[in-house]
Design a protein around this nucleic acid. Structure first.
Lengths: 332, 332
DNA sequence: TTGAAAGCGCTAACAG
DNA sequence: CTGTTAGCGCTTTCAA
């Protein structure tokens, strides 16, 4: 079975020329039903499958899209990847997935590899090193998600209403009686977390609570590191509420504080961000800000497809998806 | 910048022929250092990058490997994908990732798409529908992970010592005093869970405890479904220990039982499987059987590379990686 | 050591 | 409506 069948074989079998076979396979315009049948029969009989490499060489299209993201094991990116892939698959577009591991060097290699592979478009979640954006050719369809490029590039961007999320979380804590509210965030300079921080600050301001920089706790989004940070500050700073910029941070915090003897939410209330599946099943379950990951993923896929089919869409747009608070046991 | 540079341009710039350029780029054999220099200079100057599509058409190699797995948002598969990708990346091989979503139909489409793309090899985690294995051409390098194909195919297979894991978990519970031990497993007929079940049964036998089929609780690996199952049986069946075939199942069970008022581990002890990152940070932290996912991933990648480079490796092997128990708070 | 030329499998003018 | 032909960019004989 392993002998490769080409269009030539089909053409011979059907008694027509290769171009006719090609026509039938591609759109069927200008072909009699009879020839069409002959060709289709031959295709079936020989079990012919077009060689997409050859087609790609000729058409300069590969029907593939690259996705570069920082870490597939992070449930946010994992779900995003899944929903993007789902949508692309509906359109018979393949996804080339690349983990940059938050490493600009690896990210650069991947961008180049994907360009070499002639992907039709690129969906990009930055590791935070904006210079890599310069690697994209002008005419390559690109959609950036989640982490906004700081430079004033004319680029499509999709994310959640992060600032609003930070505001909602903080407001919820304040209205529940918290006055000394920590924020847990990552260390990135440019990231959705900074928007969340802005929301946090805005809420404090609206409720006439002073913002204190030492209440911002920075940590990688890593259970172990956040544990160490909490241990380090819990008896130096007095606090009755925590806005964690990611559910992972919330989990690390809850676990650590519980071990220290604090009651959640009686002593300390906590709000997370992302609504990862475990948030609902943690002990206690975690109040969190939900992002509509599926919508973001599907929109990205749809947008990249649109850009591929119609490269001149003019001024690039940004899209921000709504977030909402889900009340659970970690707040009163 | 967006004008595509081809070998022709480089040849012209360097004042040599395309075949010489090709030689320099590929191995540099039979070329004077002088010509080599001229070519390399031209390559740099023009910022030339070879067109991998054209090369693929010519050489029938694509330097890419397909990975089909059931669900990237499952942390086990996510980590696996990451470690596979890592290793392949070291060898400049690209990974085409496909989510079958546990759906044989989608899986079939992906297999065909990957074959069409002329991937050099395929790493495969089955959705459980063995017929799809028949789609692989005889001469395609294939490595199957985790879910063993039932048929007697001559195929490379890699997984953990699942039976031993089930044994260790159950033994631990028994030695901690449990006598009525539930096992939580998925509903798949062919899967690592069945090996784990065998280990569970073996341990019961070794300790002279009767195996009772009604103590096997079947559920999708889904927090919500396991919750429903637990609610349904907790006052029908008396039990003092649970071996959960996956940490997700353990989490669903712990959460549900806690809400019902049971103390973990005082009333009921629980052992999970996989050692997902959250296992350590759950409340209570979860005793679990750890798989060496990185080793499995790296081995798969190395193996597929070997198979690609040397297709006739004769009789296919199987590899089983050790597992071990990590003691945490969910058992005494 | 180098160059000319064929051809991988396909699509897209162009001619008929 | 169909066939002939050129050529996408590269590698690989073959001849020089």
């Amino acid at each position: 079975m392993s002998v490769k069948i080409s269009m030539k074989d089909v053409a011979k079998e059907a008694g027509v020329s290769v171009s006719t076979v090609s026509r039938v396979l591609n759109n069927g315009k200008y072909v009699t039903d009879e020839t069409k049948n002959k060709v289709n029969t031959a295709v079936k009989k020989l079990n012919y499958r077009p060689n997409v490499i050859a087609r790609g060489l000729r058409t300069q299209k590969t029907n593939s899209v690259g996705l570069i993201l920082p870490d597939i094991t992070n449930e946010f990116f994992g779900k995003l990847a899944k929903s993007i892939e789902e949508k692309l698959n509906e359109h018979n577009i393949n996804l080339l997935l690349c983990n940059s591991n938050e490493n600009p060097k690896i990210e650069k290699n991947y961008i180049e590899a994907l360009l070499d592979k002639s992907v039709d478009g690129l969906i990009f979640i930055s590791s935070g090193f904006d210079e890599n954006l310069d690697l994209f050719p002008e005419d390559l369809p690109v959609v950036v998600i989640d982490r906004r490029p700081s430079a004033d590039r004319n680029i499509y961007f999709i994310s959640s209403e992060n600032k609003k999320g930070g505001y909602l979380a903080t407001k919820h804590l304040i209205e529940n009686g918290c006055r000394d509210i920590l924020m847990l965030k990552d260390e990135k300079l440019v990231s959705p977390m900074n928007e969340r921080l802005l929301g946090y600050q805005a809420a404090l301001r609206d409720y006439n609570i002073d913002f204190r920089p030492e209440y911002i706790i920075k940590s990688k989004i890593d259970l172990k590191e956040i544990k160490e940070k909490i241990l380090k500050i819990h008896n130096k700073i007095k606090f009755d509420g925590i806005f964690a910029g990611a559910d992972r941070l919330a989990i690390g915090a809850i676990r650590t504080l519980s071990k220290l003897g604090y009651q959640i939410p009686a002593d300390i209330q906590i709000v997370g961000f992302d609504n990862i599946p475990f948030a609902k099943y943690y002990n206690p379950s975690i109040t969190t800000i939900a992002q509509q990951i599926d919508k973001i993923g599907h929109k990205s896929a749809e947008l990249i497809i649109e850009l591929i089919n119609n490269k001149n869409m003019g001024q690039a747009d940004s899209f921000y998806f709504p977030v909402y608070l889900i009340k659970r046991e970690s707040t009163t």
